[in-house]
Design a protein around this nucleic acid. Structure first.
Lengths: 209, 209
DNA sequence: CATATATTTGACCAATTGGTTAAACTATTT
DNA sequence: AAATAGTTTAACCAATTGGTCAAATATATG
């Protein structure tokens, strides 16, 4: 593997990433990828034997990317409230830089169940759950934790995944999408924390529940 | 247009809906649709001249369907808290019956910006916003309403749109997806209401904000 | 019943698409 | 500098796919 080799492989991989993210596996054209990488189509098959192999390489890398960022944040050593705020800030900043990423993963997994296994093998949910569990065990019952986690992910991922639609709707209301997302990085964690605080208050008022 | 005609057109339309929802425009095959409808492929083109026309007809109907259900709920005449609970129950019950619907709309709009206009023309956001505004204007500042709306949609739509992934993750934790969603119909609205109540408490303590 | 009209089909076509191959070119090794 | 191995290309191929067409069949109409 020479220097030129690495460059070419990277050029191809980057081009493939862009095209696959944009169009998805089925609509992506090998020729388009070749054009974007400014190389011959046959060279694609020289480096990555088939469209599927190339796609798998891209999917693998992107799945890794999104999850590394995602889980890493919860590893941080800070108080829970701060962690929630930090998570939304970091995670959404990351997603804003890679706005096509969530939809790509969701759509492709939706259409090809085999990818699910590949994706799940990368993530270690119980680890994250344990981390959160430690943080909130005094204030939240064990069964509520998965719901909290899903709420956190929903509130952070959905507004990015649905970007085109949301952007269109906000436009009609005279609101700038990017500004809205920026606000969201602050609003969403406060929303979560408010809900949890309320839960605390209620459970303290009615400890028998 | 005879009786047989209607039946055939419907058969084709239903088959197309299933295939498009499952695979998306690019991966859907006219032959598969014909097979599913148990008719000849040429007959597809007799009723719907091209793949794109057929797709547009399906997309149109589905976009209509999801939005009719969505907005209709907020028209109901009941107190705000009840409305939120009613919304999650009805909307998520509907989505559970049509689990592929959200991803279909999101993915296709994502890939073809032209569809956005078609979709937006169907919805009347300001109408819904006005309804919510009436309900919460005393307790929530105007600027917070779009965020509340996005939170509501995120919490209800995302867990359905991400069904395959979420199902896989829950499975690893020994939780049944359908049971989880059922819980979510109750948990999510309480989550929202708790967050809002907290907001009220805070704004009453600090009315100068 | 015969004619016109609408529906359905099998056979076919042109274009697209993923993939191959052999030859040309470049860099490395001896 | 000759041989070897790695890289890139143009030309080509087979399969798939959306779409067409003329003939056949069913249905309605006079």
């Amino acid at each position: 593997m020479t220097k030129a080799d690495k460059q070419t492989e990277e050029k191809i991989f980057d081009a493939a990433t862009k095209i696959f993210e944009e169009k998805g596996l089925a609509a992506a054209r090998m020729q388009d990828i070749a054009n974007r990488a400014k190389i011959n189509k046959a060279l694609l098959h020289y480096y990555f034997r088939s469209k599927e192999k190339l796609f798998m390489a891209v999917f693998d890398k992107l799945a890794d990317k999104i999850f590394k960022k995602f889980s890493g944040i919860f590893e941080e050593d800070m108080p829970f409230e701060e962690k929630i705020r930090y998570f939304f800030k970091e995670h959404m900043k990351f997603l804003q830089k890679n706005p096509k990423l969530p939809m790509f993963i969701l759509a492709e997994v939706n259409r090809n169940p085999e990818l699910l296994d590949k994706f799940l093998s990368k993530i270690n949910i119980s680890n994250i759950k344990a981390k959160i569990s430690d943080d909130v065990s005094t204030s939240l019952p064990e069964e509520a934790i998965p719901h909290l986690m899903v709420s956190i992910v929903s509130l952070s991922v959905f507004p990015i995944a649905a970007k085109p639609i949301l952007k269109g709707i906000l436009q009609e209301a005279g609101i700038d999408y990017n500004q809205f997302i920026k606000e969201r990085m602050e609003v969403a964690p406060e929303f979560i924390l408010s809900a949890l605080k309320q839960y605390n208050v209620e459970s303290k008022n009615r400890p028998e529940q």
